[in-house]
């Protein structure tokens, strides 16, 4: 299985502290602060457990996603990834954590937003690459476990799959040890540089 179009979601601790629509202003400020990196902000705050607020770019979308009735930052890589599968997983986890860190540091949200870095949902957003089957999961599991161990700093790791066949191929990785995003990002980069490339 050659991975592409990976999605990663890190969940928000205490989501009730911030209105979903507050992220609209933040994402617009990101557009204004960068030179044309991002295209648009899509507001789906009227939907229940929907895509939330989406910051659209050519190579990847970043959203405050409410699917599964759990708010989190969803990083959706669209442009092709290079490297080994572990490098690709590490690259999107790193990019997602970078975005989490940027949001946590936003003055308008500071003190109100924290992401739990001891849990992440990885999914393959291309059913041609991998359907949500046990066979695909088995093919992916080893690479995910290896990166998850690194992400969680060697703590015990569990990986499991939501087996609903209509869903994307997905792996829910968890560690029992609490961890913040800064530590998780350090874990990803300290032991080995983040390989793979986001194009």
């Amino acid at each position: 299985m050659e991975l592409q179009k990976l999605n990663v979601k890190f969940f928000v601790e205490q989501p009730d502290k911030i209105a979903l629509t507050d992220f609209i202003d933040v994402f617009h400020s990101w557009i204004q602060a960068t030179d044309g990196v991002y295209h648009d902000v899509a507001d789906y705050s009227h939907m229940q457990a929907g895509p939330g607020v989406v910051l659209v770019a050519n190579s990847a979308n970043v959203s405050i996603d409410e699917s599964g009735a759990r708010r989190g930052l969803l990083f959706s890589q669209k442009a092709p990834l290079t490297g080994s599968n572990q490098e690709k997983i590490r690259a999107v986890l790193g990019a997602a954590l970078d975005n989490c860190r940027m949001l946590e540091a936003e003055p308008a949200l500071k003190g109100k937003l924290r992401f739990a870095a001891n849990e992440a949902l990885l999914s393959v957003n291309d059913r041609l690459v991998g359907e949500n089957s046990q066979q695909s999961f088995d093919a992916l599991k080893g690479d995910v476990e290896a990166v998850a161990r690194q992400l969680f700093g060697g703590a015990n790791v569990s990986v499991e799959r939501n087996a609903d066949s209509h869903r994307q191929l997905n792996v829910h990785m968890r560690s029992s040890a609490a961890m913040d995003t800064a530590q998780a990002l350090r874990n990803l980069t300290v032991h080995s540089p983040i390989g793979g490339a986001l194009t």
Binding site: P51, V56, N125
Partner: peptide
């Protein structure tokens, strides 16, 4: 549902002429 997830932004929109629309598709 699959297509909106993979190629759009996860939303399928019903139009005023009974169509569906996806946005942000490459």
């Amino acid at each position: 549902a699959d297509l909106s997830e993979e190629y759009s932004d996860g939303v399928t929109h019903v139009t005023t002429r009974q169509d569906f629309q996806f946005h942000y598709v490459h």
